[in-house]
């Protein structure tokens, strides 16, 4: 990658996803990229945490202590968040939303640990957006049946159907682009700070990390989950 900024500074600014290993499948060359590696590390951490939490909760004590406290706090907080938005429908979706919440939060703040955040790759966030899209439409067909969906599609008049379809398709795109662009902008700004300032950038960029990784990442996670829940709720009970 040779571009204007790089040529001006001479430092190596690394914001791109790099391919590590290539393989051929059905005549297409595919790559194992840095995103895959970061995701794999993240998966191992999360699965380790999950197994530890499962072991701990299986033999839970009456008075929670230490690790059990943490696990109960996380689960209760996420349950309350889902219940606050979805109300009576929360029981079915609490698991999915909590999983997505923890996954996105961990990927967003993994920039602190020196990884390239996996959510700064459009492939990851688009998959999350498509999952939300599928959930919305599955629940729409389940709860409003085909007639209800068709009626919703031809909302004021049937001639508006193409516009309604476009606005339905815009949901996953805008959801995923919002998350992607926020995390990517944080990654780029941190890379610029480290790459261009050199030795000046010691110690004080931790403040920027707090904002771009922790704060921005947490807000975007919250927003993604909130919007997913709101859309699903709309699909379920818009009689």
């Amino acid at each position: 990658m040779s571009n204007a900024i790089l040529m001006a500074s001479g430092a190596d600014i690394d914001i791109m996803v790099h391919g590590l290993i290539s393989y051929e499948i059905f005549g297409q060359t595919c790559w194992i990229t840095t995103t895959h590696v970061c995701l794999l590390i993240l998966m191992i951490v999360l699965i380790g945490f999950m197994i530890a939490a499962n072991r701990k909760i299986k033999k839970a004590s009456e008075v929670p202590d230490g690790f059990q406290n943490v696990v109960e706090l996380i689960v209760e907080m996420l349950d309350n968040m889902v219940k606050g938005v979805m109300g009576v429908n929360s029981a079915k979706f609490a698991n999915y939303i909590s999983t997505v919440f923890i996954f996105i939060l961990m990927s967003n703040i993994s920039g602190i640990m020196g990884l390239r955040p996996p959510t700064a790759d459009y492939g990851v966030t688009f998959a999350l957006g498509v999952m939300t899209f599928c959930l919305i439409h599955f629940n729409k067909f389940k709860h409003q049946h085909v007639s209800g969906v068709l009626k919703g599609l031809c909302d004021p008049w049937p001639i508006w159907a193409p516009i309604n379809i476009i606005s339905d398709l815009a949901v996953p795109v805008s959801l995923s682009l919002r998350l992607f662009a926020n995390i990517l902008s944080g990654t780029i700004i941190m890379a610029l700070v480290y790459g261009l300032l050199g030795w000046i950038a010691t110690f004080w960029p931790s403040v920027l990390h707090v904002y771009f990784d922790l704060f921005s990442g947490a807000i975007q996670t919250y927003v993604f989950c909130m919007l997913t829940m709101t859309y699903i709720n709309q699909a379920i009970d818009s009689e």
Partner: peptide
């Protein structure tokens, strides 16, 4: 929540720049 949704249009501009 509202601010994050309002931010989207600005992020589209940023995306074009990137």
């Amino acid at each position: 929540l509202g601010q994050a949704v309002a931010e989207t249009t600005g992020l589209y501009g940023l995306l074009v720049a990137i």
